[in-house]
Amino acid sequence: MENPSIIVRNISRSYGSVKALDDISFEILKGELFGFIGPDGAGKTTLFRILATLLLPDEGTASVEGLDVVKDFKKIRKILGYMPGRFSLYMDLSVEENLSFYATIFGTTIEENYNLIKDIYRQIEPFKKRKAGQLSGGMKQKLALCCALIHKPAVIFLDEPTTGVDAVSRMEFWEMLRRLKESNITIMVSTPYMDEASLCDRVALIQDGKIMKISKPDEIVADYRHELWAVRSGRFFELLSDLRAYPGIHSVHAFGQAAHVAFDKSGMTAEDLRKYLINNRHKDVVIEEIKPTIEDCFMELMSSEK
C-alpha cells in the first residue's frame, strides 16, 4: 500500500445551523487523481478550504503530506497548489505577470519549473502580454492552473475547475490533468459534472455534507443493484410520466434522448413494458438493457439516503 498524501478523519463544519460537512473521513494516495463529485451546496468547497488551511474544522483532524492542517498550516501552504472555484487571477495583470507574481510569492521563477507547466503554458504563451481579464474562460482556466503549479507543489486542489466551461474546454482540461499525473502530483479535484467521474482514479460522491460512496468509477457502476433499461419513444415527456405510472418500476430518469428505467427485480420484462407503452399510444418504442452511468448511481444513492 502506498502512503496516503491526504488523511481526513471525522471532519465536521457548520455555518450557523447549516451542517456543511458532516463527519467526513477519507484518504487520498500519493499521485492519485481523486475527484469529489456533487452538486452546489454539497460541501465540496468547505472541504477544500479546510484542507487548504483557510478554514478551521469544528471537529475532526486532517493532514496533507503528513502535516496537520491546523498546527502546520504554514508548511502546508508551501507545498500546496490551490485553484479556487472563482478565478484566482489578477485581471489587470498580463498572463506573464500573473505567472511571475505567483512564482515570486513562492520564492521561485518561471524558468525553474517551466518543465512542469510547459504543456499547458504553451497554449496561452502567444497571449502572454494580454491582460488576464481579456482571456476567454478556457484560457483563464489554463493560466490559473499554471499559477497553481508554478512552485512545483506536492499536492494540488482544484475546486470546480470546469464549472461553466463548455464541453470542449472541459475535455481538454481533463487531458491536462491526466498528463500532470505523470509528474506524480497528488490531484484533488471537484466537479458538479457527473460524466467527469470516469476520468478520476477514485471518486467520492458527496451530497448534503456527507460522502455517499468512495470507490473507483467502474466499481461504483458495478455496485448498482437494479436492472437498467434505456427506453425511447416519439413523445418524450409523456413517456416519462407514463413510465412513472407503471407499477413495479423502481426509478425513471431522463437521460437526453432516452429515459433510464430501473426495474425492481420482480420478474418484470421489457416485453411487458413495451406492451404497456404501446397501449398508451407510444410509437417507435425502443427498449434496450444498458450499463448505468455514474449519474444513475448518484441518483440511486441520493434516493436511498433519503
Binding site: 452538486p39 464549472t163 457527473m194 441520493m302
Partner: peptide, 20 residues
C-alpha cells in the same frame, strides 16, 4: 441562461419538467 448549472441531477431533471 444556464438555469441548471451546478444543481443536483434530480433537481436538474425536475427543472426540465417545468420548462416543458
Amino acid at each position: 441562461d444556464e438555469p441548471t448549472g451546478g444543481v443536483d441531477p434530480i433537481i436538474r431533471r425536475q427543472f426540465w419538467n417545468l420548462i416543458y
